[in-house]
Amino acid sequence: MSASHAPAASATAGSAPTSYFIPEPSSWPVKGSIALFCMAIGAATWFNDLPPGPWLVAFGFAMLAYVLYGWFGTVVGESEAGKYNSQVDVSFRWSMSWFIFSEVMFFAAFFGALFYARQLSVPWLGDLEHKLLWPDFGGQWPSAGPQASEKFTTMGPFPIPALNTALLLMSGVTLTIAHHALKDNNRGRLKLFMALTIALGVLFLGFQAYEYSHAYSELNLKLTSGIYGSTFFLLTGFHGFHVTVGATMLIVILARCMKGHFTPDHHFAFEAVAWYWHFVDVVWLGLFFVVYMF
């Protein structure tokens, strides 16, 4: 895998590039800033029942989508025009690795909240000191807290989460097959297995949507179900969001494959998306064990 050796090569500060790549002045960034500003103002007014609320969020989101499309389109164009030399390639590798590390740390905050609640805050609320306040609260996980008004049932690991685990693991395999097909210059096989990977990802999201509706309608498990509901929905929800982003990225890569982009030895965009997809996969394994299983 080129994943591992490329960053190591640059740490020796070796190869002198024959030319540097510096992009032309660009208006994409400032448009992206306007988009995010609209989304922030829109969301803040929306959450506080003030105008313009959702309309401004929708506008900001549409603008952000336009910016991402245009910006990444520019990058793809530059890449296809051959402007990216090997130094740029290594820069992309470093940056994608660090970006994934930042994502790991984002999930770490929510996993940390789950561990803290299970190991510390819920048992503390059930201990002797709190018997005066809440005599009937046992401090057992799963819990919606000492003042939970409604009962709920937890989401077990079977059948849907286990099925989803299988789906994501399979999608990792199909993606690797697609990567090997790309390296062997077998374009038909590449497109087939990319499409399969996307299908598995979308299927995962479909099952998760079904699981959420099942939780709300039959288990009475909601976002408002105390700390269990909070950690369950935010952990799985942010993961689902990352699957959505990852699937979108896979679709873009498939579209580029259809257009004849990428060569057997120059296809970092493919690899970057593959890294991201495997990262999402690993997060899911963590979720499967600590949220659903134990």
Partner: peptide, 26 residues
């Protein structure tokens, strides 16, 4: 930090209980 303030946001507006002892948070 983004995670922490996101939890504040959902506690404020979406009824989560990360920092609310009544719901098992802290």
């Amino acid at each position: 930090l983004a995670g922490a303030i996101t939890m504040v946001l959902t506690d404020r507006h979406f009824g989560t209980s990360f920092f609310n002892a009544a719901g098992g948070g802290d």
